[in-house]
Simulated assay, not measured.
Amino acid sequence: MNNTVEQIDADHNVLSPVKVTGDAQEMLHEVVPAKKTAPQPHYRDTVGQDGELPLAPRLILALKKRTEKAPNYYGEPGQGDARLVSVISVIGFICLWALVTEAGWIKPLFLPSPISVVERLGDLVVNGFSGVSLGEHLLASLTRVFGAFALAAITAIPLGILIGTNVWVRGVLDPLIEFYRPLPPLAYLPLVIIWLGIDETSKITLIFLAMFAPIALSARAGVSSAKSEQIQAAYSMGASKFQVLYHVIIKSAMPEILTGLRIGIGFGWTTLVASEMVAAQAGIGYMVLNAAEFLVTDVVIAGIIIIGLIAYSFDLFMRWLEKKLVPWKGY
Rank of each mutant, 00 (worst) to 15 (best):
L96M: 14
W97M: 08
W97H: 09
A98C: 05
L99Y: 15
V100F: 08
T101K: 06
T101V: 07
E102Q: 10
W105Y: 14
I106N: 04
I106Y: 06
K107V: 11
F110C: 09
P112C: 08
S113C: 11
P114N: 09
P114Y: 08
P114D: 03
I115T: 14
V118E: 00
V118L: 13
E119T: 13
E119I: 10
E119K: 12
L121H: 05
L121Y: 04
L121C: 10
L121A: 07
D123K: 10
D123C: 02
L124E: 08
L124S: 08
L124N: 05
L124V: 12
L124M: 11
V125L: 15
V125S: 12
V126F: 13
V126W: 07
N127C: 08
F129S: 01
V132P: 07
V132M: 12
S133R: 05
S133M: 09
G135H: 09
G135A: 13
E136C: 03
L138G: 03
L138N: 06
L139C: 10
A140S: 15
A140T: 15
L142Y: 07
L142A: 12
T143G: 14
T143M: 03
T143W: 02
R144S: 01
R144C: 03
R144I: 05
R144H: 09
F146M: 05
A148T: 08
A148N: 07
A148P: 01
F149R: 03
F149D: 00
A152M: 05
A152P: 06
A153W: 10
A153T: 15
I154T: 07
A156M: 03
A156R: 02
I157T: 10
I157V: 15
L159Y: 04
L159N: 03
L159G: 01
G164V: 07
G164Y: 03
V167P: 04
W168K: 11
W168N: 11
V169M: 11
R170L: 02
R170D: 14
G171P: 03
V172F: 14
L173S: 09
D174E: 14
D174H: 13
E178S: 13
R181D: 00
R181I: 00
R181Q: 02
P182T: 08
P182Y: 01
P182I: 08
P185R: 00
P185W: 02
L186Q: 02
L186P: 00
L186R: 00
L186W: 00
L189I: 07
L191E: 01
V192G: 00
W195F: 15
L196E: 04
G197S: 09
I198T: 15
D199I: 02
E200N: 08
E200K: 07
T201E: 12
T201F: 05
S202Y: 00
K203R: 15
K203Y: 00
I204N: 00
I204A: 03
L206D: 00
L206Y: 09
F208K: 02
L209M: 13
A210I: 04
A210H: 04
